[in-house]
Nucleic acid binder design. Structure first.
Lengths: 262, 262
DNA sequence: CGCTAGGTTGAATACGCTCAAAGATCGTGG
DNA sequence: CCACGATCTTTGAGCGTATTCAACCTAGCG
């Protein structure tokens, strides 16, 4: 039973179309009803995946795309010595295997953290989706670009930031991502993360991860546990981490009018 | 005057179509002549960019795509304290701003290392390119997926690998990437990298970068300077870094036959 | 031939790691 | 409803990898 905060309704859209992915798209782009319908189609087939399960192994065939509608997952690589590195998280509205249409095999493993509610679609489905709704193709591309920025940000975090700033920066990022799909509560949000997983995300040891979180707490930056964390001083967090959620938002209309594609 | 090793000719293709980007695509996919022609079109307008110049600033409008045909560049972010983190390199055959069609603004800065020879095209050009040649759309998607793997690999490198392994791993990656576009010589390749730039790529200090390179040399793993480096024991390098150039290659035919898209 | 960017080396320091052990918390079954 | 096990969190102590500071060396270029 996922303990997400109840989503706040977006604008005024029929309940059926209130999937997190659609919410994410509508956050950056006005959608026609037709387009919304087509995206709802993508959510036709749903499936549940138990928590703590490896969904995809490095090298597996990329047979399907999964849209997360509830729960969290992560993409990772495991080294021989047992070290694990988390590349990115998937939260509601994110697609697992977004490149399935283009790449025959998965380059990295993916595992669920919580029980997962997903919509399954065949990669091929995208071909006709984009042919029928070119703007959705552009939105899909936007999503890929956003994912790219997310991973680039992860590089910067672990490459040139101290443990303290890494942690603060990631927490901010998660806050903003969840906010976009409505999974927040003022300056609090809930996560299924453990310190262990966070450590493997930020390239730190568990011990140091713990000490860093304690320090953020002692400094009055955060409060609560990971399962329900509150950012106490967002301005200061933004300042010290030099965060610019710009890479999450890009609020301009992507393509006011797309040239008629035939 | 870029001092690249002279490319070896790929298969048996007219000289005009021997652009690195096309070579990269043909490495993973058989192309029809029509498709090659269309890609050659993309290279119509060329341009030279001087070395050590910032080509794109974080936040700049993504007005054009640049295909590198000669030279190196890198994408990076600069922090307030002066720290710089390199996210990825661009070598011949790579596209700068591949998401320009989808994202209005650049999320990160890009700078040239060497003098750059580039082909310039308008992002919009891709729309009709993909409409006319759907398989090129898939190849473009493949390229984006490959870039994603490249950055993910960078995360793993700096997150959970020692300085020694990071360095070895990056050198191997560069070797394989250059090999695909023909810029290699047995187990040697030339780079315009400095230890300073490498350090900012791998999240190390210059001093430690230097010591690490010295150690790799002392261990008989590499020889020569960065401007013309030789990998002396590729098998061993692959073993200790657990490298799997799979993420660069994915040699399967991406889409034997694409369903007719109208 | 001197300047400048880049490379090299030594020494002291620090950030984060490992090892070790003890508390907390939560789910589950008796 | 309590007890137990499993997972997760916390804390202490010693160590090591990589950092910083400082200096000197080297090579290419004008």
């Amino acid at each position: 039973m996922p303990k997400q905060i109840k989503p706040v309704p977006a604008e005024h859209q029929p309940a059926q179309s209130d999937w997190p992915l659609i919410r994410k798209f509508r956050y950056v782009q006005r959608l026609e009803n037709q387009e919304i319908d087509a995206l709802v189609q993508l959510h036709q087939q749903t499936k549940t995946i138990p928590k703590r399960k490896v969904i995809l192994n490095q090298g597996d065939a990329n047979k399907q795309c999964l849209i997360i509608t509830d729960g969290w997952a992560y993409r990772f690589s495991k080294l021989r010595n047992g070290n694990r590195q988390v590349i990115n998280y998937y939260v509601p509205g994110d697609i697992i295997s977004p490149f399935a249409l283009f790449m025959p095999k998965a380059n990295y493993s993916v595992a669920s953290i919580t029980d997962l509610q997903v919509a399954v679609f065949k990669p091929d489905h995208l071909i006709q989706l984009f042919a029928t709704h070119p703007r959705l193709g552009l939105l899909y591309g936007w999503m890929l670009g956003r994912n790219d920025a997310l991973v680039a940000e992860q590089v910067i975090r672990i490459g040139r930031r101290s443990a303290y700033k890494r942690t603060a920066h990631l927490l901010l990022e998660l806050y903003y991502r969840l906010k976009i799909v409505g999974l927040y509560n003022d300056t609090s949000f809930s996560t299924p993360l453990t310190q262990d997983l966070l450590a493997d995300t930020l390239g730190l040891s568990i011990v140091h991860m713990n000490r860093t979180l304690r320090k953020l707490q002692a400094d009055g930056m955060i409060s609560g546990r990971l399962n329900e964390i509150t950012l106490l001083d967002i301005d200061e967090l933004m300042r010290i981490t030099e965060s610019q959620p710009r890479y999450l938002e890009q609020t301009q209309q992507i393509s006011p009018v797309v040239s008629q594609q035939k």
